[in-house]
């Protein structure tokens, strides 16, 4: 069984963490990567361009019903929830979940539903609990769960919350994240837990 997607959730401190992750992932990293980074709804665009500058993978904000492509990083647009349905993006303006829109939980739950054990969920730094429920959903469907090491994260609340709710598969410091993910997705064999 091989993986088909990686979903990433980040909040406070996330810009820096995403910058590191995206700059260290090799060009040949082929899984589509879908990112929710919390941000204020009046924060103007520019985040995507900012991340793209340090990323070796192309980064874009998807439009509704756009097909996911390999080798591409996607950033959830501000003030929408982002979900995945039948291989395409589905946006929504449902109410914020835990004060967040986009919400990490919403993205992760839809990825768990769509990809089951072919999804990887990654929780990075943040000062709230978003993503914990979503990561649990990925785990429940047999997907792979990865969390940034709370000890070295800018804000440890979000990694801690995820670890408290789920027996996560990997806890990695940011400095080893890109290499770790590359290795995980490159190995053809997966061990059943």
């Amino acid at each position: 069984m091989s993986f088909e997607i990686i979903v990433v959730g980040a909040s406070t401190g996330g810009l820096k963490a995403l910058q590191v992750l995206l700059s260290e992932l090799p060009v040949e990293f082929s899984l589509p990567m879908v990112i929710v980074q919390h941000r204020g709804k009046d924060m103007e665009t520019g985040l995507c361009e900012f991340l793209a500058r340090s990323s070796r993978l192309p980064v874009r904000e998807p439009e509704d019903k756009e097909t996911l492509l390999p080798g591409q990083a996607y950033l959830a647009p501000r003030d929408y929830h982002l979900m995945i349905q039948s291989g395409s993006f589905a946006l929504s303006t449902e109410s914020p979940v835990g004060f967040a829109r986009p919400s990490i939980d919403v993205l992760f739950e839809s990825a768990a539903n769509e990809y089951q054990d072919r999804a990887i969920g990654l929780i990075l730094t943040g000062a709230n609990h978003d993503g914990a429920r979503g990561l649990a959903a990925i785990k429940a469907q047999g997907g792979l769960t990865v969390v940034e090491d709370p000890a070295t994260a800018t804000c440890r609340e979000m990694p801690d919350a995820a670890i408290n709710l789920t027996k996560v598969d990997w806890i990695l410091p940011l400095s080893e994240m890109a290499a770790g993910l590359h290795k995980l997705t490159n190995s053809t064999k997966r061990y059943e837990s």
């Binding site: 929830h81 979900m83 995945i84 349905q85 039948s86 589905a90 929504s92 449902e94 919403v106 739950e109 839809s110 539903n113 769509e114």
Partner: peptide, 9 residues
Amino acid sequence: YSRASIKRR
């Protein structure tokens, strides 16, 4: 309707 969102609701 798009299933992802309707299922959530």
